[in-house]
């Protein structure tokens, strides 16, 4: 699956590497700033008030 994605990227491998790193960074930030904050509200250990 990831091999096929790699092949789908344009350019020689240094360019593919750069694009991959940018995509990974984007996904990481999306997770940390958007997805995980939402998931956290579903988690039980956040309820601390009576």
């Amino acid at each position: 699956m990831y091999a096929a994605l790699w092949r789908a990227l344009p350019g020689p491998w240094p360019l593919k590497l750069v694009i991959t790193l940018v995509l990974v960074a984007a996904v990481f930030l999306l997770l940390m700033e958007v997805v995980f904050p939402w998931v956290t509200t579903l988690m039980p250990y956040n309820d601390v008030a009576v």
């Binding site: 039980p44 250990y45 956040n46 309820d47 601390v48 008030a49 009576v50």
Partner: peptide
Amino acid sequence: LTTCHPQFSNAERMI
């Protein structure tokens, strides 16, 4: 002071 209990759970509260 109130917080959740057991440590990773919201089942109870520690007061």
